[in-house]
Amino acid sequence: MGWKILLVDDETMISDVLEAYLQREGYEVFKSENGLDALRKADSVKPDLIVLDLMLPDISGEEVCRLLRKESDIPILMLTAKSGEDERINGIVIGADDYVTKPFSPREVVVRIQAILRRASKGQERPGSAQLSFNQRQLVIDLIKKEILLHNESISVTPIEYKLLSNMAKHPGRVYSRMDLLEKIQEDGLSYEGYERSIDTHIKNLRKKVETDARDPKFIVTVFGMGYKFGGVPDVKNAAL
C-alpha cells in the first residue's frame, strides 16, 4: 500500500483535481472540507502527509495546524491564496513543512509532496520499510508511519506512548530510568511538563494496550530500583532510524 494523503480544502474543484493527480502517482487519498473533519480524519486515517488549505469554513487552517502539532509531527503542506512574505513565514513558524500559494500547478504540488515525504522517510524508498519487529511479528513498530501493530492489528496510542515504546524498542534490553524516559519525550519535540513518576502512569496505560497480560509483561519490563527496559525479541536486525 502506498502513502496516505489527506486533502483539506473546501473548494471541491481544487481537491478533486489534486486527488486525480495524486491517485495517478499511486497515493491513497482522503478528503475533508472543513477543519474539524480534518482533525477527526487525521486521528482515524493516520495519513502520511496533510495538504491543508488555510481558508476553511469553520476553523482556520492555521488553527488546524497548531492543533495537529500538539499531537503529531505529521508533514503538512499548506495551500493558501495569501502570498505575502509574512503569511508564508507564519505558516512555517506554526509547523508547516512547505507552503504553496494559489493558483498553483497540481504537478508542482505533487512534486513538493514527494520531496517532503522523501525527507520525512530519511531516504527510505517505500513506507513501511523502516520497521521494528519482535516476537515473530507479534509486535511491529512502523517508524515512518508512527504506527504500532499488535498481532497485525493497528492499536491506538498517544504520541507520548508511541515515543516511550519506540525509543525503548530501538535498544532492547537497555535499562531506562524514569528520568531517561522523561528526557526522551522532551528531546523528541513533545511539549510535556510531567515529572518522573508520571512515566509510571504512561507505562501502565501502554502495557494495557500491548501486553497479553499486563501483570506479566513481556515487552515493557520493570527493572526494580532502576526503571524499565524493552524485553521483546527482535525478529531481524532492526536498524533504528
Rank of each mutant, 00 (worst) to 15 (best):
M1K: 03
G2E: 06
I5N: 02
L6F: 07
D9K: 07
D9P: 05
D9N: 09
E11K: 06
E11L: 08
T12I: 10
M13S: 14
V17A: 10
A20S: 11
Y21M: 02
G26F: 09
L36K: 10
K41P: 00
K41W: 03
A42R: 00
S44A: 11
V45T: 03
D48T: 13
L49E: 01
L49Q: 00
V51G: 00
V51K: 04
D53L: 08
L54E: 07
L54Y: 04
L54G: 01
I59V: 15
G61E: 06
C65Y: 08
D73G: 11
I74C: 06
L79C: 10
L79M: 14
L79A: 04
G84W: 02
G84E: 15
E85A: 14
E85G: 04
D86L: 14
D86M: 14
E87M: 08
I92M: 15
A96M: 11
D97Q: 12
D97K: 08
K102H: 06
P103N: 03
P103L: 06
P103V: 07
V111H: 12
V111K: 11
K122I: 14
G128H: 08
G128C: 13
S129L: 07
N135S: 15
Q136W: 04
R137N: 11
L139P: 08
V140S: 12
I144N: 11
I148A: 06
L150W: 09
N152Q: 14
N152K: 14
S166N: 06
A169Y: 01
K170C: 08
H171I: 00
R174G: 08
V175G: 00
V175P: 00
Y176W: 00
M179Q: 04
L181Q: 02
E183S: 00
Q186T: 08
D188Q: 02
G189D: 05
Y192C: 08
G194Q: 03
S198H: 13
T201F: 00
H202V: 05
N205M: 06
N205Q: 09
K208F: 04
E211K: 04
D213P: 01
D213L: 01
D213E: 07
K218H: 13
K218Q: 14
F219I: 02
F219H: 01
V221P: 05
T222L: 12
V223W: 01
V223S: 00
F224R: 12
F224A: 06
G227R: 08
G227E: 00
Y228I: 02
Y228F: 00
K237C: 00
K237P: 01
A239I: 05
L241F: 05
